[in-house]
Simulated scan of single mutants.
Amino acid sequence: MASPDNVIIEFIRVGNSVRVSAVCTRTGREVQIVGDPRASKQELEAVAIRKLRYVMERDAKAGGAPKKGLTI
């Protein structure tokens, strides 16, 4: 089961919301969430990391590497 070791977190204010990106430095896997700018950075960071863990675990169960690009 994969889990993020070191995570880079980025906060970007976009209008009336905050976009939070979480990137696992080991795998390069990245996820984003959109949150309320009134929420604390710790809360937003925790949600982003939880999503990153979920996505990495889902990808690991599906056979490893995340899918890149679109399949037509």
Rank of each mutant, 00 (worst) to 15 (best):
M1Q: 04
A2N: 08
A2C: 04
D5N: 08
N6F: 15
N6Y: 14
N6T: 15
I8K: 14
I8E: 07
I8P: 00
I8L: 12
I9H: 03
E10P: 02
E10N: 12
E10K: 06
F11A: 03
F11Y: 12
I12H: 13
R13A: 15
R13D: 15
V14E: 10
G15M: 08
N16P: 05
S17G: 06
S17F: 06
S17Q: 11
V18M: 09
V20Y: 04
V20L: 12
S21N: 09
S21V: 04
S21D: 07
S21K: 08
A22F: 09
C24P: 01
C24N: 04
R26Q: 11
T27K: 00
T27S: 14
R29F: 10
R29I: 12
R29T: 12
R29V: 13
E30I: 14
E30V: 14
Q32A: 08
Q32W: 08
Q32D: 06
I33K: 08
V34K: 10
G35T: 01
G35P: 00
D36M: 06
D36K: 10
D36I: 04
P37K: 08
R38V: 12
R38K: 11
R38Y: 06
R38I: 10
A39Y: 06
S40M: 05
S40L: 11
K41T: 01
E43P: 01
E43F: 11
E43Y: 09
E43R: 15
L44A: 01
L44R: 01
L44H: 01
E45Q: 15
A46E: 05
A46M: 07
V47D: 02
V47T: 03
A48C: 03
A48K: 02
I49G: 00
I49R: 15
I49K: 15
R50L: 14
K51F: 07
K51Y: 07
L52E: 00
L52R: 02
L52N: 02
R53Y: 03
R53N: 15
R53P: 00
Y54M: 10
Y54E: 13
V55A: 05
V55Y: 05
M56G: 00
E57M: 15
R58M: 06
A60R: 04
K61G: 12
A62C: 07
A62Q: 10
A62V: 04
G63D: 02
G64P: 03
G64I: 02
A65K: 10
P66N: 02
K67S: 07
K67Q: 10
K67L: 08
K68W: 04
K68P: 00
G69W: 02
L70Q: 05
L70V: 11
L70H: 08
L70K: 13
T71Y: 09
I72K: 13
I72M: 11
